[in-house]
């Protein structure tokens, strides 16, 4: 099964996918932006500030999703010792860090008009900052440790330990009294967001996921070339 992610088999498709995403990205972005900024209605309580949700929520979801992938692949890498999985996690981590930081930043910009403060040491916000720190540790492990085997081992360990934080982030709004509202969208239950707002939210999520895929593929391709370049004489 792991042969399917063999770089030499998928390299050709990486190039094709990058070109495909590049060709459709701006059209979908313009549609999503039109829905988010023009067509979706203002909230009856929060007014137009609710539009921040269209970048804040997808950013937070991507930050969480990326770390979940990172932890899962790190566990697989620990068990099966597949080098390629480390290349994948190395390519995911900067994307996750970027979106976690964006979620915190846009959350702060949303907090000022709704809560009257830019920042609060609230359980949800603090656990998101801790998530960003885990991302930083993961990236630093790769940057600072020269021995690649050791760097992979330590970064995988960081990802596995950091995974404990994921359910804490998810359930922080239920376990503690927080300024942050409880989740309004449930995969397995009722969602409390009207379809006129849910559609732009999903469109923005799709656009940002496409962007993530694009950056991931470019980073992964760079990693493959870096390895090939190192081994060019051995080829």
């Amino acid at each position: 099964m792991f042969d399917l992610i063999n770089p030499s088999k998928i390299f050709y498709w990486i190039e094709k996918l990058i070109n495909f995403i590049n060709s459709i990205f701006f059209i979908i972005l313009i549609i999503a932006m039109t829905f988010a900024l023009v067509l979706s209605p203002p909230d009856y309580l929060q007014g137009d500030s609710v539009r921040i949700m269209y970048v804040h929520v997808p950013s937070a979801w991507i930050g969480l999703l990326s770390f979940t992938c990172l932890a899962f692949l790190s566990i697989l890498s620990f068990i099966f010792k597949i080098k390629n999985l480390n290349l994948i996690t190395k390519s995911i981590a900067p994307i996750g860090l970027m979106f976690t930081c964006l979620a915190v930043l846009t959350g702060s910009l949303w907090g000022q008009p709704t809560w009257g403060t830019w920042w609060a040491w609230d359980a949800r916000i603090t656990s998101m900052v801790i998530l960003a720190l885990f991302y930083v540790l993961f990236i630093l492990a790769h940057k600072l440790i020269e021995d690649e085997y050791k760097a992979n081992k330590i970064s995988s360990l960081i990802a596995i330990i950091g995974a404990i934080n994921i359910p804490i982030i998810k359930y922080s709004v239920d376990w503690w009294n927080t300024l942050h509202q409880p989740s309004s969208i449930n995969v397995y239950g009722d969602s409390y967001v009207h379809s006129s707002m849910l559609l732009p939210l999903m469109l923005m999520l799709f656009v940002l996921l496409l962007y993530c895929a694009l950056i991931f593929l470019m980073k992964y391709k760079t990693e493959i070339i870096r390895i090939k370049k190192k081994n060019i004489k051995r080829l």
Partner: peptide
């Protein structure tokens, strides 16, 4: 009145 917050969020992203 929320322009500064909304546009800053989108611009930063």
């Amino acid at each position: 009145g929320y322009g500064i917050y909304v546009w800053s969020s989108f611009f930063a992203t």
